[in-house]
Structures are given as C-alpha cells and as structure tokens.
Design a protein around this nucleic acid. Structure first.
Lengths: 126, 126
DNA sequence: CTGACATGGTCTAGGTATTGGACCTATGCG
DNA sequence: CGCATAGGTCCAATACCTAGACCATGTCAG
C-alpha cells in the first residue's frame, strides 16, 4: 500500500493542511501556468481564461504566502508585476506531473464511466 | 521538464477536466478515507469530521459518476450503503500518494514561508 | 401498543465564497 | 484635455456550502 495513512484524514495533519491549500479551484491551474516560466498578472488571466481578477489575485497571494511563488513588483507606471515559481514551487511540479499524467492516461475511463452512469440513470427513471 | 504542457491550462483539455473534478475541497479527502477499505456513509462522515452530509453525498455521487467509487445499497432497514474504490479509484492513489509524500516532506518549508510572509507584512505596515 | 432510535439521504434557510464590473493610481501619448 | 495601460481593490449580485429539520421504515425498550 502506498505511504498514505490515516493522517490524511486527520484535520490537524500537515498533509491535510497542504491539501486544503492546493485543493482549491485555481491553485493547481496557476502553478501549471507558471510552470512555463515567469508571467505577468494579465498574462496569467488570459492564459487561464475563466478566472476572475479577484480570484487570481487571492490565489497568487496565497501561493506567495506559502512560498510557492515569488512576486516581483517593478515600480514603473503603469506598474509591472512578475510572478515566478520558487524552488519550492518548482519541486511541486513533480508530484503534480504525476497527477497530470494520470489524468491524461485515465481520462477516457472517466468519460466512459460518466456515459455509463448517465445511461443507468435514464434506465432507472424510464 | 516534466511532461506537462500548455494543455493543462486549456479549458477544453482532459487534464483540466479531471483537475476540476478532484480539485474541490473534498474529493481528495474522501478518496483518502476510502483508501483504507470499504466504508459506510456515516463512517465517512465521522472519519472526515468536518464535512456536511450534503457535501459528502454530492462528492460521493460525483466520484461514483466518474467511476472512482462503487456504491452498493443493501435494501435492509435501516438501509445500509457501502462505498468502495473501483480499480480506477485505486489506480488514482498512486499519483495522489506522490502528492501526499510531497506535502509531508515540504510542509515545514511552507510553514516557514508563511511565518516569514507574516513578518514582512508586519514590517511593511509598521 | 407507543414511542424512541437507527441509516442514508434530501430540503430549506441562512451564511459564506465567487463573479463581473466599476473604479483607482499615475504617467505617456496624441 | 482625455484616453490608454497594469494591477489591483471594492461592491453588488449570484452561486455555493452549512447546519439542522425532516422522511421512510423496521426493530427494540417499556
């Protein structure tokens, strides 16, 4: 069995703490976007597409706070702000890569499961 | 570089689709709880602790829909329902284990980053 | 016989989070 | 002057989530 035990479910555990942070709607996406290199705020907005300014701002703030991302403000006008992954952030790309590879490999099974489920529902209500 | 490219950020891509599903507040936790074996509804409630019935119900329904979890209803009174991981669900434990290991290893760095950030803020506003 | 209890949910009311859009700063450009 | 630009913040409206009441039905205590 994989090294993942009861602690995951314990509300006080470090793993839960980390999972709660990255397990939100946007953090993984922002990290994925930054994986391509340093990016500016609006660049991230465009790239992710359907994230609101406020959420992007908040997500970046939390990622910065937790040490995944480095924020650099160039005091020009209009201001320029660059976001880049820290070493910690880059190290996170590895387990995240595993997740992404899994998603890529098993996506078909998931789509199939959804179709089958929809089928079952239709049957049941018919 | 890890095999994770621009597609991650594309809203139509399979990876994004999967990430959106597991990237909610509870899915990972439920999967972690089920990793220990078949569980009943209230057992999951107790184990996770701070999840509401509605969210647990909804999360389980989605996980079932996507083929991660198998739901078995025993038509007794009071009804008994058991939730177990499918093969797909079990296969997901592997990349998830990577994530958990990373969290465990780097938690200290994150806590340190938070402390440092708090320090900086205090400085800036002082 | 009456009534409480148990399970696995669903429904509703109220609170919290998220969204889209207006607005702000300050300068350069026509 | 007046608009554009970059990176946000603020607010109102909306979506989401929570706690708790409620449902069905059979079993067991009294």
């Amino acid at each position: 069995m994989i090294e993942m035990d009861q602690r995951v479910v314990d509300q006080q555990c470090p793993i839960r703490d980390v999972l709660d942070r990255i397990g939100d709607q946007w953090s993984l996406l922002v990290l994925a976007a930054l994986q391509g290199g340093t990016k500016r705020f609006n660049e991230l907005m465009r790239e992710i597409g359907d994230i609101s300014k406020q959420m992007l701002s908040q997500t970046l703030k939390r990622l910065e706070q937790d040490g995944f991302v480095l924020r650099t403000l160039f005091p020009e006008v209009p201001p320029r702000v660059e976001y880049a992954l820290t070493d910690l952030g880059r190290s996170f790309l590895e387990p995240m890569g595993g997740l992404v590879r899994w998603a890529d490999t098993h996506h078909q099974s998931i789509v199939a499961a959804r179709r089958q489920y929809a089928g079952r529902i239709t049957e049941a209500t018919a």
